[in-house]
Design a protein around this nucleic acid. Structure first.
Lengths: 181, 181
DNA sequence: AATCCGATATATCATCTCGATATATATGGG
DNA sequence: CCCATATATATCGAGATGATATATCGGATT
């Protein structure tokens, strides 16, 4: 059976520790979010599928009158996870509205393009800060999650610098045309 | 009316030049693809919506017995495109299966993690080459599309280097544990 | 004590998106 | 003439998204 990356995020998370759907979402939001997001609409149906396939096992453990189901990985699930991890990665997708706008910016003033670049830069720097906030926690545990986090920090820092560079380029060439033309 | 980024890719493309749905797809595949992909399943329904909204206008211009519809942007469409371009970008998403696998790589051998990183690096270098191939064409026209293309080249080159760096780090620390532990 | 807010927990829904496939015609090479 | 490939449009199931619905719990405010 071929498992989707989405199935494997969930499998990987319950492998790290038994978790409820809610906890998976919360953990994903502060860890894998910046390179692989997960929504409730994916998590709950996928948990059912994985349980039916025998890769995870759910145990009802309500707190008070509030129902709750904690999922654990099974031996079969651990094996499927390893199979997936050993296969070469396939999906790589970037969806960047800022670059898209920049691409079409001949239709607007240069000021609009540079403002766009400043927003992009601010967003990347913002992400750097948010990732730096969780870094101490990740550093305490070390291992791959820490490396991936630092990769993310470096990436957004690089992107912020690249935006600043392009903005400077546009500013140094743009005005000439306005003055000379 | 709020236009989705998908609607605006199409609007932007028919603004550059009148095009058929097929041509939009072909053009997107070799230009915006690396930061914003578009599929037929998006393009054709969206063309209908945009035409109904009066932002583009389709003219039937069959070649021989094969029907064909070329879309042009209207004045209203050009204005909507500018409105969208002037608003700050919102969507930024990365979906990187390689980083996801790396994140969970405690479950497999270090060799599997480094192999994963090599694959990631190769893919990024591959993309650099593919983008370099279309660079001369973009350089002839210049402007924003060229800048965006060069941004993409720099990005994938950076990512390839970052993967190589992390691989070297894993190789320098991994074996120690095998030997010493 | 009553109330309200936000966190916990699960579920669902319309809408959008993806990748594949279906259908049909045109073109050019063998 | 046939076949592969390119052009052109359309559609489908499966999956993803973001929002919202439902309900309980803990803690703070009034």
């Amino acid at each position: 059976m071929e498992l989707s990356p989405t199935a494997c995020v969930i499998l990987g998370m319950v492998n790290l520790a038994p978790r409820s759907g809610y906890e998976i979402k919360a953990f994903a939001d502060q860890s894998t979010r910046f390179f692989w997001a997960a929504s409730y609409g994916q998590i709950y149906p996928e948990l059912k599928r994985l349980e039916r396939a025998g890769l995870i096992e759910g145990t009802s453990s309500p707190q008070g009158g509030r129902k709750r189901k904690i999922f654990e990985i099974t031996a079969a699930g651990r094996e499927e996870l390893r199979v997936w991890l050993r296969q070469p990665p396939q999906t790589f997708e970037l969806r960047d509205e800022g670059l898209l706008k920049l691409f079409f910016s001949d239709a607007v003033d240069p000021e609009d393009a540079t403002r766009n670049l400043r927003t992009m830069r601010d967003e990347h720097l913002n992400t750097v800060e948010r990732l730096r906030e969780v870094e101490p926690m990740a550093a305490a545990k070390g291992g791959y999650p820490l490396r991936v986090l630092r990769f993310g920090i470096s990436y957004h820092q690089w992107a912020a610098d690249a935006c600043a560079e392009m903005e400077a380029e546009l500013l140094s060439r743009g005005p000439k045309q306005t003055v000379g033309g």
